[in-house]
Design a protein around this nucleic acid. Structure first.
Length: 156
DNA sequence: GCCAACGTTGGC
DNA sequence: GCCAACGTTGGC
């Protein structure tokens, strides 16, 4: 039985978009500074898991494509870099506070699936991202929700 | 341990 | 740019 899990990960496309990931092939998912999201990456994400790439703070916001986790959680180096906007003075290499994972491009949907469409889609009422005030940047997605969302678009 | 103040996220 | 919702901080 497969133990693959499903996720949704947010990023502002102005800083890094699905097209950047498609170009790069792989990247590290740095800059997460929320404990719940950190715990998911540290404890629950495993290579082989799949994640939606969600464009937040975008016009419109929505799900842009799919990526695969290829490396489990390890310390996010930007927390130690005083010149980085994500530097955390309370973290040290001996006592890292923040984690990241590596991801790989899998596919891009032919058109973005906007948040308002997700909210209107039957079966996604309990999906975390469709809930009002949901700010969590790394969210679990159920297999049922995953299948519904992926059925909404072709990929390219 | 409570909770007010503050900073951030992110849709609109 | 606004601001509601939320998470974190720190005084007590």
């Amino acid at each position: 039985m497969s133990t693959r899990k499903y996720w949704l990960m947010k990023c502002e496309p102005g800083s890094y978009s699905i097209d950047d990931l498609k170009r790069d092939g792989t990247t590290f998912w740095d800059g997460v500074r929320n404990y719940q999201a950190r715990n998911s990456m540290r404890d629950d994400m495993k290579p082989g898991d799949l994640a939606f790439f969600y464009h937040s703070n975008a016009e419109p916001p929505g799900i842009a494509g799919v990526m695969e986790i290829i490396k489990e959680g390890y310390p996010d180096h930007t927390q130690f870099d005083p010149n980085d906007i994500h530097c955390d003075p309370k973290a040290s290499p001996d006592n890292p506070r923040w984690m990241m994972v590596d991801v790989k491009f899998v596919s891009k949907f032919d058109t973005l699936i906007p948040l308002n469409e997700l909210k209107e889609t039957k079966g996604l009422e309990e999906m975390v991202v469709t809930k009002k005030g949901s700010r969590l940047s790394v969210q679990p997605v159920t297999k049922k929700e995953w299948n519904i969302v992926t059925s909404l678009r072709k990929t390219k």
